[in-house]
Write a protein that binds this DNA or RNA. Structure first.
Length: 287
DNA sequence: AATTTACGCAACCGCTTCTTC
DNA sequence: TGAAGAAGCGGTTGCGTAAAT
């Protein structure tokens, strides 16, 4: 027995939303709030599927959306986060108040990808395209490849046992950062070390919901301060440490924490020529 | 001015994850 | 504990428009 479709396909409007439909949806949500998307269309008098309503609201009708061009800062945040977590658009969007996952995804595909390629950076691996041409055999033990990409963890081609493993790892990802360290193949000292940093929490707090009127400015500011953290990725040339480590430090009542992963050098390249020496992942919370 | 091509973005689809019973 | 439903997510598609010819 298959699963019933999320909505009747017949007699449903598809394609671009009309002004009237938008108005209906907005006025319904304003008076009833975001509730059950499945039943919303009927209740709001819309001939749309619930998913379609949800998408329309989240991506275009929400009043807290920021429209217009992305700033350079936003570019930087997107690139930095993408190098860490890959195509996790919703997580990235949560770091950019007023931006949606769909918007960021489109922006990535149409602008940033091209920008990176023009700078000789592979947008998938965030590494220099030329660097990939160096054969493994030429690497020495000292040329340890260090990576903080989660890409492999989300590889959809992985099946069965690996999938199960990935599921577990995904779970870990919710609360922690996986720092993957590969060493050169064919070398006796080869190690693939995965360092879990369970204290790094990607919980999304920085942007209170638009309708949450209980948050006064003070509370909001405090909330942001509490979640402010920095993820430092130093230039590998200056790094001597071979292992990544997590550390936290308290500063009075406000918890500013730093994750020193100085050995993870490959992402420390100069993003967009901005001399990025660290990734400022505001609101990555350390418990 | 007409046609073709490229691009950007809104929307859809299908799969995964979460929640409830 | 597992099944079913609901919500969320990310890849992909297709349309509208700007740019090029």
């Amino acid at each position: 027995m298959g699963r019933s479709p999320c909505c009747e396909k017949e007699h449903m409007n598809k394609g671009a939303w009309t002004k009237e439909e938008d108005e209906r949806l907005v006025s319904y949500i304003k008076s009833h709030g975001e509730g059950c998307w499945r039943s919303l269309p009927r209740a709001a008098g819309l001939l749309r599927c619930g998913k379609s309503c949800r998408l329309r609201w989240i991506n275009y009708l929400r009043p807290d959306l920021k429209r217009g061009n992305f700033t350079r800062d936003e570019d930087e945040v997107i690139i930095n986060l993408h190098s860490l977590i890959g195509n996790k658009w919703s997580l990235i969007a949560a770091r950019l108040p007023g931006r949606t996952d769909n918007e960021i995804k489109n922006y990535w595909n149409t602008h940033i990808k091209r920008k990176l390629l023009s700078k000789g950076i592979d947008p998938n691996t965030h590494r220099s395209i030329n660097a990939g041409k160096v054969s493994d055999s030429k690497k020495t033990e000292d040329q340890v490849v260090k990576d903080v990409s989660f890409g492999s963890l989300f590889d959809k081609t992985e099946k069965s046992e690996e999938q199960k493993q990935n599921k577990k790892q995904k779970q870990n990802l919710i609360n922690g950062l996986v720092c993957k360290e590969e060493r050169v193949e064919h070398h006796p000292a080869v190690v693939v070390q995965e360092i879990f940093c369970p204290n790094l929490n990607l919980e999304l707090r920085i942007s209170p919901p638009w309708h949450n009127k209980n948050h006064d400015d003070h509370t909001r500011e405090k909330s942001i301060n509490y979640t402010a953290s920095r993820l430092y990725v130093q230039n590998g040339m200056e790094s001597s440490s071979d292992t990544a480590k997590c550390q936290t430090e308290d500063s009075s009542s406000i918890s500013h924490s730093s994750l020193d992963i100085s050995s993870i050098s490959s992402v420390g390249y100069d993003f967009l020529g901005l001399n990025t020496r660290f990734m400022d992942l505001r609101s990555l919370e350390m418990n």
